[in-house]
Design a protein around this nucleic acid. Structure first.
Lengths: 231, 231
DNA sequence: GCCTGTGAAGCTATTCACAGCT
DNA sequence: AGCTGTGAATAGCTTCACAGGC
């Protein structure tokens, strides 16, 4: 539905209590937060939009726009409180508490993913991993307990998992996506090299490395310009 | 620079012999190609835009627009020749021959990346891997020979490598990006969990898993709608 | 003076809709 | 009847530019 008056401009009608924003904005917010965390741990108390801009590679205007959607308001003299912003972005992105997530497929890629998130504490915690290989079941791999895929429904329910990462071979991916969706997962990150059709009501993000590689190769070939790479 | 007449609309002025297109289009083309390859190997000779649409999850109009930029023209009765399209997209994306690419960092993630591309033949071939760990140097890992990072300049030059994949720890990433750029690489795919500033003239793609996870988590929390996930 | 917050303008991307072909 | 190719319309995103505050 269209928005009519200037002041109702904020969210499209259906009066959700909690926020939502353009995908791109969400992505940038996620990055700002991480930059801010390091700023805070460096002992700085305040940041200006152009600080975040130069750290992130976006423009200052863009940064301010993005911060508008989280509703955190700075101060012309001092800028934004770094800590305050981290918290504001946190409640915006994560809500009251970070989501629980599960990884399916503990092969090469799966282990790399676990290692990647080990020690980081993003807006989601990897609380369980699943695999069919009995040799992996029961072990703790990169700090994450591995269960049999057969337990997926029960554990998704018990842990309140709403996010699933798929890192299984191509031919198994669609089945896993379905099974996760049926178990109650609402968001999927697919690392398998096949395009998945998102089950109804679940948000699907495709991690398509082949596409990215080909895109970069294409730009590399044609006098690369774009994104940050100026000129 | 602006484009003036209707018929000059094709490419912005500076008369490059070879193509260029919006990033998003490139991404979709890459996917179409892979879908087409499986269509061809299933023995089908022709496809319609809506076939590609339903396989890829985009709209038929979108597919046709994208194919416009590669300049391949179909036929109202039969649609597009599947083989012809694969080839047309191939020459558009890859040019005369696929780019040579190098991976830096053969840890968990690096190995997973090698495994991922092993056997696939996308628009770039992984022809060399580099690491500082002497234990890895000289070995062949997932079908790819591993060299000392010290050889990077020489090998990049010798193999004509123009694409680099960075899979080193966060603190080493910026240095590696610089070194690759200085050695002549024109496109970078960064898997390290830090935002890199692209060296002048090189195209940089950030593989930011944390961002993606947080985005998916955010949508999962908020009655997920978006992308494909209908309703 | 330099910063934030934000309407308004400018771009880019997607979708519509239809002429032309078979 | 159903498809492609494509101008025109729409929607979405980013940048500009400036009012208002310290």
């Amino acid at each position: 539905m269209k928005v009519i008056t200037v002041d109702a401009l904020e969210w499209p009608d259906d009066a959700e209590p909690m926020p939502s924003a353009p995908e791109k904005t969400l992505e940038r917010l996620s990055l700002y937060r991480r930059l801010l965390v390091t700023i805070v741990s460096d002992g700085r108390r305040h940041v200006h939009s152009h600080d975040l801009a130069s750290l992130s590679g976006f423009t200052a205007a863009q940064v301010r726009r993005d911060l508008m959607v989280v509703g955190y308001t700075g101060n012309p003299a001092r800028g934004y409180s770094a800590e305050g912003l981290v918290e504001a972005i946190g409640t915006f992105l994560d809500g009251p508490e970070p989501e629980a997530a599960a990884l399916v497929g503990v092969g090469n890629l799966g282990r790399a993913i676990l290692a990647y998130f080990l020690g980081r504490r993003p807006g989601a915690r990897l609380v369980a991993a699943f695999d069919i290989d009995p040799a992996k079941v029961g072990r703790v791999i990169q700090g994450c307990r591995c269960y049999s895929i057969e337990e997926v429904e029960r554990r998704v329910h018990d842990h309140g998992i709403r996010v699933g990462l798929i890192a299984v071979p191509a031919n198994a991916a669609a089945g896993v996506a379905d099974r996760l969706a049926r178990a109650g997962v609402r968001g999927l990150l697919n690392f398998a090299p096949v395009p998945l059709r998102a089950p109804a009501g679940v948000y699907l993000e495709q991690m398509d490395m082949t596409t990215w590689l080909e895109k970069v190769a294409c730009f590399a070939r044609n006098e690369a310009i774009g994104k940050d790479g100026n000129q």
